[in-house]
Design a protein around this nucleic acid. Structure first.
Length: 570
DNA sequence: GCCGTTTTCGGCCCGACTGTTTTCAGTCG
């Protein structure tokens, strides 16, 4: 997917326009497009092919043309022109905390600074402190910002952020005057990765809470400290913001700090139309607060149903809340089984009995054991002989009836270079549930990869495509694949798509989930657990599913065993 | 540059904090 490259190009364009300084609103329009393209999820090339770029919020005719130019040629004429005019590496300078467009413009014009290296030198030589509006502190801040950037300031997996956030929550809750505490921001929207943690606290004694917070163990820097807001940096470089909001404004604070930016901007627009004003303290008519203590009131007074945080990305949820057509989102309780798991038979750590015992404790109605197959030698994949033995073993286990849960005979079968499977059909036909996955040749070009996957989906014993794009968050991008063609083939052959719930995968992503379910394709949310503890990863799959507007009926493993078996019939 | 049930023109979210300033500009979220 080229979404990221497109959004980066638009961002550079936006920054350069902003540095020119004459068309602020144009720059803002570009920034809006940067955010919505960056988080759109669906493959931008597919969207462009259908001439639907202007369906993306904030993308109009002019920006759509620029996206098309970029996709066709890898560049945008206006961007090339601006780069010549202002030969500054704006993207790397803007990434420094505390450095924005005005600073970039100033240091370029006065000192000829064009990139990170020349900025660092200028700062160390003490040239920044003499510039108008700057001083020794700003100069030091920039030097530290560059250090921070080099040290790898970035995003954190939601699962990791959750551990940090829970530990902070406990420590803040221990403070005697705290009434309410909520982790807001992209964390509350359950984005796959987060940049920082935003904590909202209702406490009468704000000062002492702030004091305790900034003195927590593990704080390496106090970025800011005021009456109502403080920011700290933790040892792992993650930033944590704490905001104190009074009880009567707590709902407004939650709404405001949960975001997203675009959701909030849209909401404020609606408030303005109604002659109201919305900020983090409440919804106001003139000087009178008409809502603020809880979130529901805010939405209600704006003529909207309350919106689940996972939907708040300004991707149509506000219109749906106006029309009363918000989805009835799936929840963890709806899950009746897990259809992708591993044991020590291949590369898992626990025995089949251990995995089954842990799954049964979750109250599942069914559970599929699906170890790797022979071509994945590194994972000790099974050949036909071992797989047949495994089938007998599961038949015996089901017959013994140690668990009320039905054990489904499965495998995660490798898709070979030509799209054939590495297990014979006569063996596949004896399995209850067949998942096929790509584990090799992940650098194949789009045509080849799409061909391999589609060929595999045409095998009449296949039920599911595992982790369809192969991405590993913060580590490896999706492989080149035409998901549209894959979805079409899947639809034709009654094959479901996996939402792999591992916090590093979350594959399909929310945008692709929406595209797949629009076509009527079923999704299976699976943990792909390689040990007992990973069975708990189902929650992360549910978060992503909710971000993808999924309802119970979209998801294969919310159906009873009987209905599941009916749905799997070809 | 985008957008629309007050609009196809005239708007465009809003407040906290910092540092460099004697009242505000820049950055951030």
């Amino acid at each position: 997917m080229k979404n990221r490259q497109v959004s980066q190009a638009l961002k550079e364009l936006a920054l350069l326009i902003q540095i020119e300084g004459t068309e602020e609103y144009k720059a803002r329009a570009y920034f809006r497009a940067v955010r919505s393209v960056g988080s759109y999820g669906e493959d931008i090339e597919a969207v462009a092919r259908h001439g639907e770029l202007t369906n993306i919020p904030g993308v109009g005719k002019a920006i759509a043309e620029k996206i098309e130019a970029f996709l066709a040629s890898g560049s945008i004429p206006l961007l090339d022109e601006l780069r010549k005019k202002v030969p500054v590496k704006v993207m790397e300078l803007e990434a420094i905390p505390g450095v924005g467009p005005k600073t970039i413009k100033l240091i370029y014009e006065k000192l000829g600074v064009t990139d990170l290296v020349s900025l660092e030198k200028a700062a160390q030589d003490g040239l920044l402190e003499d510039l108008p509006g700057m001083g020794t502190k700003t100069q030091l801040q920039i030097i530290e910002g560059i250090e921070l950037l080099k040290a790898g300031l970035g995003r954190t997996l939601l699962a990791d952020a959750m551990e940090i956030a829970e530990s902070l929550r406990k420590r803040i809750e221990a403070h005697p005057t705290v009434n309410q505490i909520v982790i807001t921001g992209s964390f509350r929207r359950r984005r796959e990765t987060v940049r920082d943690i935003d904590i909202l606290v209702d406490a009468p004694d704000a000062v002492s809470v702030m004091e305790a917070f900034t003195n927590f163990e593990g704080v390496i820097e106090i970025i800011g400290k005021g009456d109502t807001k403080s920011s700290i940096r933790l040892e792992n470089l993650m930033q944590v913001d704490l905001r104190i909001i009074p009880t009567e404004s707590f709902g407004a604070g939650m709404q405001y700090f949960t975001g997203s930016v675009d959701h909030n901007v849209h909401l404020r627009g609606i408030a303005r139309q109604k002659g109201l004003k919305l900020n983090e303290y409440g919804l106001y008519k003139d000087e009178t607060k008409i809502a603020g203590e809880n979130e529901e009131q805010i939405y209600e007074k704006l003529g909207l149903k309350w919106i689940f945080p996972e939907l708040r990305e300004d991707r149509g949820e506000i219109e749906a809340a106006q029309n009363g057509t918000l989805p009835n989102l799936i929840s963890l309780d709806d899950i009746k089984g897990d259809l992708h798991s591993h044991t020590d038979q291949s590369d898992g750590t626990n025995t089949i009995e251990e995995m089954l015992g842990a799954a049964a404790e979750k109250g599942y109605e069914y559970f599929c054991v699906s170890d790797h197959t022979q071509s994945l030698t590194i994972a000790n994949g099974m050949d036909e002989t071992r797989l047949l033995r495994r089938i007998d073993e599961i038949d015996d286990l089901n017959a013994a009836g140690r668990w009320k849960m039905k054990i489904l005979k499965g495998a995660e079968v490798d898709i070979l270079a030509d799209g054939d499977l590495d297990i014979r059909d006569d063996v596949l036909s004896q399995l209850d549930f067949v998942t096929v996955s790509i584990h090799s040749r992940m650098k194949d070009d789009k045509k080849k990869m799409t061909g391999r996957v589609c060929h595999a989906l045409e095998n009449k014993y296949v039920h599911l495509l595992g982790h369809p794009t192969g991405r590993l968050l913060l580590k490896r991008p999706e492989f080149e694949i035409d998901l549209e063609a894959v979805f079409e083939t899947a639809k034709k052959n009654n094959v479901a798509m996996e939402l792999n719930a591992h916090p590093k995968r979350l594959d399909l992503n929310s945008g692709n989930l929406r595209a797949a379910t629009r076509l009527g394709i079923k999704i299976s949310i699976n943990t792909d657990a390689h040990r007992i503890a990973e069975l708990d990863n189902m929650q992360f799959g549910i978060y992503e599913a909710r971000r993808g507007w999924l309802e119970k009926f979209h998801v294969l493993n919310t159906y009873s065993l009987k209905d599941l078996q009916r749905l799997l019939k070809k």
